Amino acid sequence: MELRQLRYFVAVAEELNFGRAATRLRIAGPSLSQQIKALERDLGVRLFERDRRTVTLTAYGETLLPRTRALLEQADELRRAARGFAVSEPVRLGYVSWRPPDLEERVSGVAQLRVDAWVLPSHAQAGRVADGSLDLAICWVRATDLAEQQLTARLIGADRLSAVSVGGETAVRARDAVVLVDADADAWASWNIYALEFARATGATVERIDDHGITGPAFFDHVRRLGRPVISSPKRDATPLPSGLVRRPVIEPAPVWTWGLVSRWDETNPAVLAAVAALTREVVVDFGAAPYWLPGDDPFRPGAATYQP
């Protein structure tokens, strides 16, 4: 049982409509339904009676609702108290592979910044913000992730991805490129999601690997083995480009990877809020000439919700 599931229960109980509750929670309807079913399994009782038209609380649900509200209020009060104690503590920031070169300068005078040395994948860093291990993280994130983990994000940077090939000078069309997808779904979860959606949208070829060759010497080995342009991930790597390989722009469309500054929805620590404002103030991110491509669930797509409540 998780506090998040209890919040979902209260929302559905108040709306008596899964669609409205999902909109209120900024979560997909099927995901909300699955979480409620999981909570019912954990509790061993049915909380709702539902059919195609109506949703009603069961007797168990009626009994547990006020107790759940009280429990959530206690949890919120504990969180507020803990953050009140932590106002004078450094703001903990994690990142994946990119961060602004003037990071510390931007927050100088408004917050004491501690950059976490534990570099982890995007989904892991977002999770650490959600569980309180970090205050902020610079990572790639989906709108669904933000909603489910009660996070918010502001755009702080973007990478226009290129391809690496054996020779060649002209730009590479997306449908003529290859994207690598690694079997390690934990280490490369965010990249795999991005790469597979890009392939579905553009016709690029998916090449499945199991050697973590998304970066480093193994990546260049795959480029030579395939003999085709392979799209390079945004993961920074100190390995120099080997002789005989060239980096080429990708067009029609150009893949863009966004970096968001992620924090908690209900953040109240003045130092954290000041750091967010300082790091994103007057930030202008240029995605480059159109056409460019962003995943459908990217919160920074033109017209998408900004997730800055």
Rank of each mutant, 00 (worst) to 15 (best):
T205M: 10
L39V: 05
H123Y: 13
D186W: 12
A163C: 00
A117F: 13
V91Y: 05
S88Y: 09
R46W: 00
V166F: 12
F300W: 09
Q5K: 12
R160Q: 05
A177F: 00
A13E: 04
H123N: 11
V87L: 04
S122D: 13
R175T: 10
A147R: 14
G227D: 13
L196M: 08
T144K: 15
A177L: 03
G127M: 12
P295W: 07
V129M: 15
P121A: 08
E77P: 02
T306I: 10
R175D: 09
R50S: 10
R264V: 09
S122C: 14
E282P: 02
T170E: 15
E104P: 06
E73Q: 09
L113I: 06
A81S: 04
R20I: 06
E252N: 11
G296E: 11
T63Y: 07
D221P: 00
Y307H: 15
S97Y: 04
I209Y: 04
K37P: 04
R208S: 09
R301C: 11
A289L: 09
R247T: 04
K37E: 10
L155N: 08
W293M: 03
G213D: 01
C139Q: 12
A304H: 07
T170S: 14
L93F: 08
A171C: 07
N192Y: 00
G216T: 00
D42G: 02
E2S: 15
R53H: 11
T205S: 13
V164R: 06
S243Y: 06
S162L: 00
P66T: 01
V110S: 07
A183Y: 01
G288H: 01
R225W: 08
G303W: 01
S232G: 02
E40R: 05
P30T: 05
C139S: 13
R142S: 15
D221L: 05
S133W: 12
V55M: 07
T63M: 07
R99D: 06
Y95A: 11
R200Q: 13
Q35G: 10
L6A: 02
L113Y: 08
G167M: 07
G19M: 12
V91C: 05
Q35F: 06
S232P: 00
S97G: 15
A274K: 03
L43I: 02
L93C: 08
P121G: 08
G109R: 08
I209S: 02
L180D: 02
P242V: 04
R236G: 06
V115I: 15
D210R: 10
Q149D: 13
E77V: 06
L120G: 11
T280M: 09
E252C: 06
S88G: 15
R92K: 12
M1H: 12
P66L: 00
R173E: 10
V178Q: 05
A158N: 03
L16T: 01
R41G: 08
F287N: 01
T54M: 09
A59I: 07
G260F: 12
D116G: 10
V179P: 03
W118M: 12
P242M: 05
